[in-house]
Design a protein around this nucleic acid. Structure first.
Lengths: 222, 222
DNA sequence: CAGTATTTTACGGAAATCCATAATCAGCAA
DNA sequence: TTGCTGATTATGGATTTCCGTAAAATACTG
């Protein structure tokens, strides 16, 4: 079983629940951070003291404060923690149920478990911790297990995301092209843009641009 | 102080925290529902038994299950509870920070408090309960207090919402007009629709329709 | 009822987008 | 170099949206 655990979770109501789980599992050495930055610093400090954490339980969405932050959300946190300490186990604990985002956590940050906050998530969290502590298996909540089956999220590349973000913030297509030209981004013709858009509309089965933006917003892609 | 409390909250991790608050306040007679429908039935049953609840603490967003539900979210729940039992005190406890929605809770459902789930929300919840139990005052979390100051949310009426929903699901304007004509909705001309859209774009400072839909989705209006 | 104001509808040109096709260019093999 | 292939860019016309103005219908007033 894990000896030293760190929790990254901003909502006090929830972190109380998580701490209860750890106590039930007789894990007493745990810390709790309300900010991603803080969690990251603690993890780094622990490594330097040669007393590294062996489990991170992290929320994904964090409220934005007045204060300046380097790491804004759990996705970035787990990514950076994985780079810093490749052998740490990571469980994401979130309400996020968009398969696109869950899949990318397993693919990119190689997380060890995903527990969906829900009606029985406390029990699930226990199960996940138990499973991961004793094996190299991955845990994922049954409601969203299908996320991992989904065939590759196709080729929605970085440029597509850029275009979608511009569109959703009201920039007309012509201006987006101009911006890309000014920035020296490679494909920057009207046609290229239109081709990409029509590919995206085809892929997401959107009738028009409004629909497309609406869909990708719902999916949490932008 | 309140004698009998009901909690409507689907996430188990959070309801544990709320229950702790109630225990700290020496409130022992409380029930907990994970579904809005269930909460509503309990409240009605309590009235019938002449032992009504005097406080409802309700979340706003509830996860959708496989099961069929009559009341899908906290907004509807508090609305219906207010109609059923006008003298009950109601606290909304939610991560929702869109002023549009918060204001409408005070205006339409006449809730008594709004506590924003956050870093110190457990303490805030205690404060809110204390305040409301001893006076007719309203409680609102400081971070979102400005919501109540905002001048009327203008006249975004039901039809506007309908139009926006259609747009966001990919229906072209012409078709929306046709749908309205078929349904016998009153203003159903191309011009009327365009005028409304341009009013909305003006109001929300949107550059175009894509932008408009993006904004109202972010605000939680649709 | 006449007259005025407000709302709704109609119309039309400008702008943006959609969509198919053609031209251009870059890399590569013969 | 030549010719092929695929990717990018250009072009133009159909459709949709945008936006202002005018006509028509409705409501309101004295």
């Amino acid at each position: 079983m894990f000896k030293k655990v760190i929790i990254a979770e901003d909502l006090d109501a929830i972190s109380l629940g998580i701490e209860q789980v750890l106590k039930d599992l007789n894990i007493v050495d745990f810390q709790h951070s309300k900010y991603c930055d803080d969690a990251f610093l603690k993890i780094r400090a622990a490594i330097n003291k040669n007393e590294p954490y062996d489990l991170l339980i992290s929320d994904l969405s964090f409220k934005t404060d007045h204060r300046e932050v380097k790491i804004a959300n759990g996705d970035e946190l787990v990514q950076k923690v994985r780079e810093l300490q490749p052998d740490i186990k990571i469980i994401a604990y979130s309400v996020e149920d968009k398969s696109y985002r869950i899949k990318s956590l397993f693919d990119n940050a190689d997380i060890d478990g995903f527990v969906l906050k829900g009606l029985t998530s406390i029990e699930e969290l226990k199960k996940a911790i138990n499973l991961i502590s004793t094996s190299e298996a991955k845990y994922i909540s049954p409601e969203v297990a299908s996320a991992l089956q989904e065939k590759s999220n196709f080729e929605i590349d970085d440029l597509d995301i850029k275009i979608l973000k511009h569109l959703s913030s009201g920039t007309p297509q012509d201006e987006i092209i101009q911006i890309f030209k000014d920035l020296g981004v490679k494909p920057n013709s009207k046609s290229a843009m239109e081709k990409r858009l029509s590919k995206l509309k085809d892929f997401f089965k959107a009738n028009n641009t409004v629909h497309l933006v609406s869909i990708v917003k719902d999916m949490g892609i932008i």
